[in-house]
């Protein structure tokens, strides 16, 4: 592993002087599906947001493929958590996906036929072509999530960040989304997912970052997804994991 798709050094983020992420060093290699896991309040989303410059960081140095955020912006695709927008907004699924192309289009340029075709093919990729002209309020949770995914796909990024893409999504949709993520990986792209379902970690992800305000572990799933590390991250809350059939080494 020579190229790090994401490298974070000494990242600390605090809300009102209470640290949410404390002195985290981590890296994610190119071409993997990576999960950021940890208990509630561990700072998973905070870490993601700080990396993308959505919230200010107290300290830290972050690079994407060796470049700082400002130079790497065009390589980054972001899928925000579904709850971050008003789904009653007057717009259609197709229009949401076209929004992913606004950046490339540049200022003052109008969205044209080309953009619509790209957006339609992204919707097809996520199995949403039939719902392109639906008002987004009329989509199910899983369909909304896939619309967001399609919007990230049209950006044709090198590294994708997703905040809890499997929340309130049924099993079939979850598998469909994972299949898309795997095809992204097959194209050599990197996908970083904030994830909360421990049962699926070994199945979906080949890289894991475990977080509980401080970094607990960072590495290949096979190496770091151990009961020892999970105990460190989740503490006493982990006793039930064995009952739930989570496979750990």
């Amino acid at each position: 592993m020579t190229t790090w798709a994401l490298e974070i050094e000494d990242l600390t983020v605090a809300y009102h002087s209470k640290p949410a992420v404390w002195d985290v060093d981590m890296c994610i290699p190119e071409g993997v599906l990576a999960a950021i896991i940890g208990p509630n309040g561990a700072g998973k989303s905070t870490l993601l947001k700080a990396a993308l410059g959505l919230i200010p960081k107290a300290t830290g140095h972050i690079t994407f493929y060796g470049k700082p955020y400002a130079q790497a912006r065009a390589w980054i695709g972001y899928v925000p958590p579904r709850g971050s927008v008003d789904w009653d907004f007057p717009t259609t699924a197709l229009d949401v996906v076209r929004m992913g192309l606004y950046g490339k289009l540049g200022w003052f340029k109008r969205v044209g036929k080309n953009e619509t075709e790209l957006a339609m093919s992204a919707l097809e990729q996520v199995g949403m072509a039939d719902y392109a002209h639906r008002q987004i309020r009329q989509l199910s949770g899983g369909q909304q999530q896939r619309t967001f995914l399609a919007r990230a796909l049209v950006q044709d990024a090198r590294i994708y960040f997703m905040d809890e893409p499997f929340v309130a999504v049924d099993a079939v949709t979850e598998k469909a989304i994972v299949a898309i993520l795997q095809s992204l990986r097959a194209q050599g792209k990197t996908v970083v997912v904030v994830h909360h379902d421990l049962q699926t970690v070994t199945e979906y992800f080949d890289w894991v970052t475990m977080l509980n305000v401080q970094l607990v572990a960072n590495g290949k799933t096979a190496e770091v997804f151990t009961s020892d590390n999970l105990h460190k991250a989740y503490g006493g809350k982990l006793a039930f994991l064995n009952d739930m059939g989570v496979e750990v080494r």
Partner: peptide
Amino acid sequence: LMTFDLEFAQANG
């Protein structure tokens, strides 16, 4: 875009 999804707009610079 900003009215619909501020976070996405921000993340895209």
